[in-house]
Design a protein around this nucleic acid. Structure first.
Lengths: 200, 200
DNA sequence: TTCTGGTTTGACCAACTGGTCAAAATAACG
DNA sequence: CGTTATTTTGACCAGTTGGTCAAACCAGAA
C-alpha cells in the first residue's frame, strides 16, 4: 500500500511539474536542463531529484498527464448530435485549450517536432484509432448530405493546425498583431471558416 | 577584397549547413550539439569550427538564408491580380514549400516555439510590415465585394497554420494517415476550404 | 621538386550536464 | 520534550559541451 503524499510532497511535485512544463515546452527535452527546472521550481537540483528520479521521469510524467486530456475534445465529438454544431464545437474547444493551456500545446509541439520519440506508438495506435473513428462519423454525415463532402482527416488536421497555431506560434502572432488580443478574432474567424466549409 | 571560396570550402560549408539544418530543425538550438552536426557533415569538430567560428554562427547563417526566401510566397501576392486566384495561389505556394522544404519549416517552428530569441525584431518589423501591407490589399478586396468579408490577418494565419502543419507535424500526420501520401489530399482540401471561404 | 597557403587533426581545456551520497536540517507525532 | 521519518543541502563525480591550438597534412602553382 503506497503512502499518501504529504503536503510538502504535493506542493513540490506540483512546482516541479509546472517548472518542467515551462522549460520543456520552450526548449524541448534535450535543450532543457535540470538546473533550469530546479531554479524555476525554487528547489536545489538534488532536492528536485529527491522527488523525481531523473530528467526523463519529469518529462514522462508531463507527457502522460498531457495525453490524458489532450484528446478529450475530439472524444467528445458525438455522432448522434447535430453535425455542424458538433464539428464547430470541437474546433471551439480546441481553440479554448490553446488559450488556456498554451504550455501544454507547446510541449506537445516540441515532442512532435523532434520526431515524437516518446509517443510515436501512441500516435500510431490510440490517436489513429480515435481519429479514424471520428473521421468515419464525419464521412457518414457527408455521405448523408448533412454537411459538405470534404476529406474528414484533413478537416481534423486543419482544426488542429489552426487552433494550435495560436499557442505554438504565439510570439509570431503577437508580433504581427501588435498587442491586440488574438483569440477573439481567431474565434470568429474560425466560426466563419468552418460554417462556410461545412455548408452543403 | 574577400577571396573567392575554394571548391573544398564550398563543399564543406554546404555540408555543414545541410547537417546543421538537419540537427537544429529537429532539436532546436540548445538541444543540438556540434558533435552531432560535425558527424552528420562528415567532419571532425575542430574541422567544422575551421569553417564556422561557433555554433551560433551556423545557426545564424541558416536563419538568415531561410528568412531570405521564407516570405517570398507572400511577397508575390499581387494586389492587381484576381483576388481569389491570388490568395489560393499563395496558399498553394506555401503548401509546396512545406513539401519541398520541411527542414526549413521545422527550423522556423523551433525558433518560434523557443520564443524567437534570434528573430523577434524581424518579426515585429519586416514581417509585420509585410503582413499588414498584404492584409490591407485583402481588406480592400473584401470591401469591394470581390471576396467574402473575413479578417485578413487571421486568414493569413490560417494559411500559415494549415500549410506548415504538414511539415512541422509530419510524424503525427503520417501516424494518423498510415502511409498514404498526405500532400495530395491536403492540396485538394485546401482548394475546397479557401474557395468556399472566399466566395461572396 | 619545392614552396606556399589552405585544410585537417589530436590533444587539450574550462564550463556545464545529469546524477549520487552522506550528513545536516526540519517536520511530525506521541 | 524526545524520537523518528521526511526533507534539504553541499560536496562531489564522470561524461559531455563548445571551443582552442600547435602541429601535421595536403593540393596546387612555379
Amino acid at each position: 500500500m503506497t503512502k499518501a503524499p504529504t503536503r510538502i510532497q504535493q506542493r513540490n511535485r506540483a512546482a516541479i511539474l509546472s517548472a518542467g512544463l515551462d522549460i520543456f515546452s520552450q526548449y524541448g527535452f534535450r535543450g532543457a536542463t535540470l538546473d533550469q527546472i530546479a531554479d524555476a521550481a525554487g528547489l536545489s537540483k538534488p532536492n528536485l531529484l529527491y522527488y523525481f528520479p531523473s530528467k526523463e521521469a519529469i518529462h514522462t510524467a508531463l507527457l502522460e498527464r498531457l495525453l490524458e486530456t489532450w484528446l478529450d475534445p475530439l472524444k467528445a465529438l458525438d455522432g448522434s448530435g447535430d453535425p455542424v454544431a458538433e464539428i464547430m464545437g470541437y474546433a471551439q474547444r480546441k481553440l479554448a485549450m490553446s488559450r488556456d493551456f498554451p504550455r501544454e500545446s507547446r510541449l506537445f509541439a516540441n515532442e512532435i517536432l523532434q520526431g515524437a520519440p516518446h509517443i510515436e506508438e501512441i500516435l500510431k495506435t490510440d490517436l489513429k484509432t480515435l481519429v479514424d473513428e471520428k473521421a468515419a462519423i464525419i464521412q457518414g454525415w457527408a455521405d448523408a448530405g448533412k454537411i459538405a463532402a470534404i476529406d474528414p482527416h484533413h478537416l481534423i488536421f486543419s482544426i488542429w493546425a489552426f487552433t494550435q497555431h495560436y499557442a505554438d506560434f504565439d510570439v509570431q502572432v503577437r508580433a504581427v498583431l501588435g498587442d491586440k488580443a488574438p483569440h477573439d478574432g481567431a474565434l470568429s474567424f474560425l466560426d466563419t471558416l468552418y460554417s462556410k466549409l461545412l455548408r452543403v
